[in-house]
Nucleic acid binder design. Structure first.
Lengths: 386, 386
DNA sequence: GCGCTTTCAGAAAGCGCTTTCTGGTAAGGT
DNA sequence: ACCTTACCAGAAAGCGCTTTCTGAAAGCGC
């Protein structure tokens, strides 16, 4: 489960008196005492509204109205229906409700690469909070960065008649996939579905929560220049992602404003390991090292920090390091990372709000621009020898 | 969005040429070019199977069979139906399908406290991966630690006729809530629903993925004793949670095996801040400080580490610190934290597997015990002055 | 007391599918 | 040539609900 690695050691397993199995995992069974039958009748499969109506001695229609309160129902009847529903343990069938009513169902779909990634987890957390307030259920889909799966999920969410589909994070390099995605989304929107995205360009009638990647990166560059740096490198991600392109361009812009040219860009995957590898590559390259490195995401920056430490490069004394996003972990590492802070949970709340407020289907698309705050922390300082 | 805090500084926002709005957030609209009408007919609302059948010149029944392939359909007809479905952009209505078929719908419910917490995010990630492989959609519900919301979610998931309900993480202190939860779950299980939980005791016919908290904590204690420590403190969580109780008891057991008595237990919330506060409280108390501290979760340990650093306590020279869970962040802090590693994503995969494999409704309940590995990292060392 | 409106319960028509059940046609046996 | 199987398309009956429509009963003014 855990491979022994640099600076850590896995201790052989403790065998307490309670544990006898030789495996790391043990499956046991236990008999559950049969629940003593309460007063409640045993529902064979599912209690239907029909059963409730019969129990209450009213018609199906009345039972429905009594429980959902759309039209007036005499108080005594309503009481009887409620009591019957309670007694029988009635739970409405959401499918039948969605089918019968024009309302549709109270769910939204959320598609992201991986909830295990703190960036997505932060946004998802915001979506969840907002959804909870509106009694919406969120259908979560993790693509694990496979475009085919992403499209399949949109299709599934369409089948589920989700009120809205939320797409979080960069799209894929391959234009063909993006086109396929548009083809999938277009009829959905036409049919009244709402789509909103975070940090992803779309060609459609889709609302967007868009971090100001350029401005943020430019501001960061300006701050780093102010610390005295002249010599920069960027640890970048897949070049086709707009997020990457914008942050890189913004950083260049910020440097240019001070008459500085970016010396070096190293590309890596959008993961901790990608950042680690990119940093290693940067250090391996001969020549003078930059005094300051900007990783286009915090996740990469965390990997880079580890790489620098392993290589004996002191941060920030030998080299300053900055990231982007402000995921929680960057406050915990030492030194804590300078970054451009994005309000992740708030972005999650906004994207769902944007989608749900959208006038069904057509209409202009809105862009909610989110500014990032440059937060200087311990990972950046004056360049060495200044 | 980000309050200036200890050791960090928020830089005033950069105003690039592109940004003119004075707010941190800006809402703009843009007109989308109207999508040129393709060959495809414009679906007014939703394409129904009926429309597909008509287009293909076959009956509704045949269309259904052609698309789902349960019974044999002549190849040419099947082809015509498929073509018609493609042409019209048919997406089946999952609600109607669920309602009409005995199969039910392809969704499972996942209830946890907060996907923003790396512990839950890790498990959720595992659930997502397993679900993706079986073409299941996951309905995610975050309770934000409110028992009422948790019960409401179970009810909603019941209404959605989720194939399975997965409950992740400790239950609540209040026995009344747990009883209410049982009352909610019991008819669900009776009606054929599957329930599986991670790290949570239930009185019902429910499968469980249960980390070996006692054995793990005991093993950790043994390892720490072996490093030379005699003087321990525990940063604990809410005492009524079985997870907490087990880890604490296990740790005591491990110490007892070496003839050592635990000196001090400080309670805190199950969060980073809880760990921070508990550590502060521990340091504030006068008297000799323990040489080694065990925080019952990594999340708390991370908070504790920050508190120790702020108080000028060096880890591990002045004090050793260990956690439990092995969430990713503990490898990134310095020193990296010694902990008991739980295979979080694997636990997620197991809990959903357990639920889905469960013979519908009744039957024995199974317990999958997960052993933790003690992983010694830089946060633990020999006690000072040895 | 009569016709009027108003109130509210019940009957019934779907929502979009799956799945029997029915029946027509072609193939095979005698 | 006739009858039995076998195969497969279509009709129709729901799945569990919402919602319109219908109509009975009650309240009201005259």
């Amino acid at each position: 489960m855990t491979a022994p690695a640099h600076g850590q050691e896995v201790v052989p397993k403790f065998r307490g008196p309670a544990t006898t199995a030789p495996l790391g995992v043990e499956l046991s069974e236990r008999e559950t005492p049969v629940h003593p039958d309460t007063r409640r009748r045993a529902p064979a499969a599912h209690v239907t509204l029909d059963a409730v109506a019969r129990e209450a001695g009213v018609s199906l229609a009345t039972a429905s109205r009594a429980l959902n309160g759309t039209t007036r129902v005499r108080d005594d009847l309503r009481g009887r229906v409620r009591a019957a529903a309670d007694l029988l343990g009635y739970i409405p069938n959401a499918h039948a409700q969605a089918l019968a009513s024009a309302e549709g169902n109270r769910t939204v779909g959320l598609i992201c690469h991986d909830v295990g990634d703190p960036y997505f987890a932060g946004i998802a957390s915001g979506v969840m909070r907002a959804a909870a307030e509106q009694d919406l259920l969120v259908m979560l889909a993790s693509t694990f960065r496979e475009p085919a799966r992403e499209i399949a999920y949109v299709s599934m969410l369409r089948a589920q008649r989700a009120r809205a589909i939320l797409l979080i994070g960069s799209g894929f390099q391959d234009r063909a996939w993006e086109r396929a995605m548009d083809a999938e989304l277009e009829p959905y929107v036409r049919a009244g579905g709402r789509v909103a995205v975070v940090s992803r360009h779309r060609s459609m009638r889709v609302d967007t929560v868009q971090p100001e990647n350029r401005a943020g990166a430019a501001a960061l560059a300006a701050s780093l220049v102010k610390l005295g740096h002249r010599d920069f490198a960027v640890l970048s991600g897949p070049p086709e992602l707009t997020t990457v392109a914008d942050r890189l361009a913004g950083f260049r812009e910020g440097l240019a404003a001070a008459g500085i040219t970016l010396r070096r860009v190293v590309r890596g995957a959008f993961t901790r390991e990608g950042g680690h590898a990119a940093a290693c590559q940067l250090l391996a390259g001969g020549g003078a090292r930059p005094t300051c490195v900007f990783a286009v995401t915090d996740v990469m920056a965390v990997g880079a920090l580890a790489a620098l430490r392993e290589a004996g490069v002191r941060v920030p004394e030998d080299m300053s390091l900055a990231g982007f996003d402000d995921i929680p972990v960057v406050r915990e590492v030492s030194p804590p990372l300078t970054t451009v802070a994005l309000p992740l949970t708030e972005m999650g709340e906004q994207v769902i709000a944007l989608a749900l407020r959208r006038p069904s289907g057509a209409g202009r698309s809105r862009v909610l621009r989110i500014e990032g705050d440059v937060v200087l922390r311990g990972s950046t300082g004056a360049p060495p020898g200044s």
